[in-house]
Design a protein around this nucleic acid. Structure first.
Lengths: 200, 200
DNA sequence: GGGTGCATGTAATGGGTTACATGATTCT
DNA sequence: AGAATCATGTAACCCATTACATGCACCC
């Protein structure tokens, strides 16, 4: 019994259900479409593609190309579509992803507040950037693919990212305020606190 | 060069910096304090504790107990504290956690909207429950540990979870609306769409 | 001449969960 | 009688990333 059914093969099926693609294309496509909540490495993609072919869930054909390696184009079979639908029906169970930043915040009393300030600021920057990308993606979906039946679903996924990132940014602002207060309080208080250890 | 420095050992150090504990205690403590964004299994805890002891970052002593296995109580050393502070200073790099529910939403056009409705609803239920737990935790920290210098940091970590969960719940409501509209539209439209395949 | 993109894949390595093994005590 | 709690740990397995290997074309 596998511990976690992993979904690495299933996302390939899912994308191939939209259009036939090569392994390389799949990697690109994943980064572009679901990159904000999912990633796959080649080390996962190629072996899984093999397994899918062996199981009859995709068909593969080779295209000769001058100067480049053969392109192996994979297309989903009817059995593949069925498998995909089955998988989509299985309720995803809630997981607890690990969050290293939060862990460092939780343990923050062990270091100067400035350390956490820097971490939170850099997190803000990177999340602002991805939020902007997401906004652009949303626009693009509406503009270029608005009529496709899958478009509403893509937008739901994007919307999730937008709301989550907004929440993170709000948290970051709040947290920076608190941290700066702590820092100011420390600077004002008489005791030296360079090394926290020893004060019980 | 390790691909991801993993932090499984560091969280142990971090908790042991608050008070000496056994491996069993650590597991409990992790669930209780940072369980909403971090988890560790025994298969991780015990071997790491060994490594920490070997590296001189914790000291371990055995306590005999009648009828139970010996309790191995670990306490952090000065070197351990230093290591912890170093690790806390390293900026956490942003990661993209995988989100199976979102993947299923993204691919949702392949199945009846009712399937996604069920998934989103069950996600709402579970997230509402953890939000309530978090609210309780926040209260408890303020009430019972309010004077501890680490309390503000604990509250920041909790706050993150609260804001994120609120965002998720807002998204879930929006999404349910959209899905129900799609479902209604489908029911009204004349074509049979049981099996989506074939309609390009 | 060197970087980037296209295009395939494998091997090594590591991180983590699950299942197993043991066993007394206490609660239901 | 049986389940849960205390308490330790190991082994098997799996999932995933990284690094490596190859090689042409195109652009700067």
């Amino acid at each position: 019994m596998p511990k976690r059914s992993s979904a690495s093969a299933e996302i390939l099926l899912g994308l191939l259900a939209m259009e036939p693609m090569s392994g390389y294309d799949l990697a690109q496509s994943i980064r572009a479409s679901v990159g904000h909540f999912w990633n796959e490495s080649y080390g996962q993609i190629y072996p899984n593609l093999r397994k899918l072919a062996k199981g009859g869930l995709v068909n593969s054909r080779s295209e000769r190309q001058a100067g480049k390696p053969d392109r192996h184009v994979h297309s989903i079979t009817e059995r593949g579509r069925q498998r995909l639908r089955e998988w989509l029906t299985v309720p995803p169970q809630p997981e607890t992803p690990r969050n290293e930043l939060l862990l460092k915040v939780f343990l923050g009393a062990q270091v100067e507040p400035e350390v956490l300030v820097a971490h939170v600021e850099s997190m803000m920057r990177s999340e602002r950037a991805t939020l902007q990308k997401l906004n652009a993606t949303a626009q693009e979906i509406a503009a270029a693919h608005g009529k496709q039946p899958a478009a509403p679903y893509w937008l739901m996924a994007v919307r999730f990212g937008q709301l989550e990132l907004q929440a993170h940014l709000r948290w970051a602002e709040e947290t920076l305020d608190s941290l700066r207060q702590i820092a100011a309080h420390r600077a004002a208080s008489p005791q030296k606190r360079r090394r926290t250890h020893g004060d019980k």
